[in-house]
């Protein structure tokens, strides 16, 4: 299998990734919590895939399983044609990095900025002397717009935006080709968000990294992504080009998500119709049979309760998992 995949056009390929967590539901009894239930997508080199969905739908878990912070229950992840597993992850760590959501807990309060950014360099021994390490760190700090004199300071002396820049510099230290941005701008306020997002784009142009951009803010995701995948309860329900998805969403869940995006223009906002979903998100411990979304879907039919829709191509690479739309 892996030999055949060798010359792939994709940098990252995810095939039917499943991640279940055992949850104790009684004495000596566990029920699997299906955080991610059969997710497949591809990312080309230098491309950005946005991943959106509401809280608890498994976006973060996808990112973390991808980088093997968890051992996936089943499914394959290929990086640059090579299967990611326990043995190969060691040398892949250099190529795949992550930027975290919370700029406050993602930096060790007992380390200076220099040591935080230098940690991946230390782990992979990417320098031959103290001077080279220092040069590389200062270069990275300049790249993300931090002053060189900040190198000896501690993380708590910085603002949220600056901290996120430190986190990004750390992710870039090993010259990765793929970065998972796990809600990387959600914790920042809007003006800082714009700065950081623009920086992500600039870095992509300069260094050619690919992003998996996880977020719940559709506007942000639309701005940065080439393609967008929409997740609901552990499954991808729609995946399409960013503009295509924004202009003509097909899946009822995507439609309602898009209708909830706040518009900056009050006139437009008034005219627009909001699709309000009824009911709550079902518990991932007790998922409905068939299509997970049918309990809240106004188009649901008998068939939705029987079988689970798979992603089908509706032209132009616009994939949707729905029988009725």
């Amino acid at each position: 299998m892996s030999e055949m995949k060798k010359k792939s056009e994709y940098l990252v390929e995810v095939n039917n990734l499943k991640q279940y967590f055992p949850i104790k539901t009684g004495f000596m009894k566990t029920t699997p919590l299906k955080a991610v239930d059969g997710v497949s997508f591809n990312i080309k080199a230098g491309e950005t895939l946005g991943l959106v969905g509401e809280s608890g739908c498994g976006k973060t878990t996808v990112g973390r399983s991808l980088l093997r912070l968890y051992t996936p229950t089943s499914g394959d992840v290929f990086f640059d044609g090579e299967r990611v597993d326990k043995n190969s992850i060691g040398h892949m760590r250099k190529q795949m990095q992550m930027v975290f959501q919370d700029p406050y807990s993602s930096l060790n309060p007992r380390m200076t900025v220099e040591d935080i950014i230098g940690e991946p360099l230390d782990v992979h021994k990417l320098y031959s002397g103290k001077g080279e390490r220092r040069d590389r760190i200062l270069e990275l700090m300049e790249l993300v717009g931090l002053n060189a004199e900040h190198a000896t300071r501690y993380a708590h002396e910085f603002s949220g935006g600056q901290r996120q820049r430190i986190g990004i510099a750390r992710a870039l230290a090993t010259n990765p080709r793929f970065i998972v941005c796990d809600e990387a701008v959600s914790a920042l306020d809007v003006s800082i968000q714009a700065q950081v997002i623009n920086m992500f784009e600039e870095l992509q142009e300069k260094l050619g990294v690919a992003y998996l951009f996880i977020a719940h803010d559709l506007l942000v995701v639309h701005h940065i992504s080439d393609r967008i995948a929409v997740m609901y309860l552990g499954r991808i329900v729609e995946i399409a080009d960013a503009d295509d998805l924004n202009a003509s969403p097909i899946h009822p869940y995507t439609q309602s998500l898009l209708s909830a995006v706040p518009y900056p223009d009050p006139k437009m906002a008034k005219e627009r119709q909001r699709i309000i979903l009824e009911g709550d998100v079902p518990s991932p411990l007790n998922m409905p049979k068939g299509c997970a979304f049918r309990t809240r879907c106004k188009y649901a039919t008998e068939r939705c309760a029987q079988e689970c829709p798979t992603l089908t191509d509706r032209g132009n690479g616009h994939m949707v998992a729905c029988f009725n739309k």
């Binding site: 760590r93 795949m96 992550m98 959501q101 991946p120």
Partner: peptide
């Protein structure tokens, strides 16, 4: 539970280094 421990893991740090550099100092 802190994300900086995850970050160290993603960077490829071994358990010994994580305990020594991240967990014990805190």
């Amino acid at each position: 539970q802190n994300e900086y421990v995850l970050a160290a893991k993603i960077s490829g740090a071994k358990s010994g280094r994580i305990i020594r550099k991240h967990i014990l100092p805190n």
